[in-house]
Design a protein around this nucleic acid. Sequence first.
DNA 1: ACATTAAGATTATGACTGTAATTTAACGAT
DNA 2: ATCGTTAAATTACAGTCATAATCTTAATGT
Lengths: 186, 186
Amino acid sequence: MRMSRSDAAKNRERVVATASEMFRAEGYDGIGIAGLMQAAGLTNGAFYKQFDSKEALIAEATAEALARNAEAWQAVLDSAQGDPLAAVSEWYLSAPHIAHREKGCAYAALASEAPRHDARVGRAFEDGLRHTLSLISGAADGDDTMAIRLLSRLIGALMLARAVRDPELAASIVAANRAPEAPRGS
Amino acid sequence: MRMSRSDAAKNRERVVATASEMFRAEGYDGIGIAGLMQAAGLTNGAFYKQFDSKEALIAEATAEALARNAEAWQAVLDSAQGDPLAAVSEWYLSAPHIAHREKGCAYAALASEAPRHDARVGRAFEDGLRHTLSLISGAADGDDTMAIRLLSRLIGALMLARAVRDPELAASIVAANRAPEAPRGS
DNA sequence: ACATTAAGATTATGACTGTAATTTAACGAT
DNA sequence: ATCGTTAAATTACAGTCATAATCTTAATGT
């Protein structure tokens, strides 16, 4: 049955939002169009009216996820009392973030799959990264190097903490990575 | 046609070695049993004589990849002249390592998929991680915290450098992460 | 009010998935 | 020399994949 223009647009947004969560939870290959559409309350037939291909949705959903991630970074940096870098480190490696991949950092969840996908996906990651780095660098006296190093380390730590089974090992990964890096002399 | 016991064992090893490379290149879901067997010079029918399931192969191939990775770490640490941590950082973020996912670090390539797989896979990652961390820590005066932070950061940096499309951005990720962390005062 | 348009459902496509039964033929031991 | 064992090939299974044509129905433009 046909829906109004605005309802169709809402449906489209819901598909992208659903995809951005399901891809983070299951991987790009872990969920198919049919399952995705069903989770969004539609059927697979509706998909190709809104998107060119799964690859196009992957690019769009990735950009969506990274945009939401950036909002979260900004909120934590803005509301931090004391050292904002310590605040984001604690938030990024918190138990909820480790547990809920589907709402968490798209880099930790999906970046390793990017090289296998087309240029749009790579560009989504690239744009998201530049944006996130500018937020961190802004909270670190414009130190870009420090921003890159901090983000790299946090992403790696989150992945490792999620990958291991032993809670104690996961806890030691988190503990070791909570403290920001000491500033380097020139 | 049937092969000798030792040939069969060699075939099995070749399947595991092939899988350990193809999984790193394509992801666990990116390559199927048929394609895997064909790449190893066999047909899919031979698979279930040697392995219980794809999941069992995933666990075994992951352990294999991590064991080879650990050998590489040890070789670089052993043969380093000057600061061994600087040496591994340079090696880990070198152009060949970035370019050849199939022979590179299994953490950067596959760890984000671990939570979706069964306990054997998680344990493979866990055992591999403990081993690699002990190697690094041994080269850092037993500083376990430093070892975890360094490995986390390198893994994140490698993933990011591979994910972005712009070579300049990739180069800046590498450059920022080449230098080891300054020691922290107590 | 009515023809046009388009969103979504239904159904179909051929390729591929993991798994497995059956078949073939060479090895290991007798 | 014979024969049971077994590695690998062949073939088949039911399910899922991304994609797409067709159909239905309701919102839109006039």
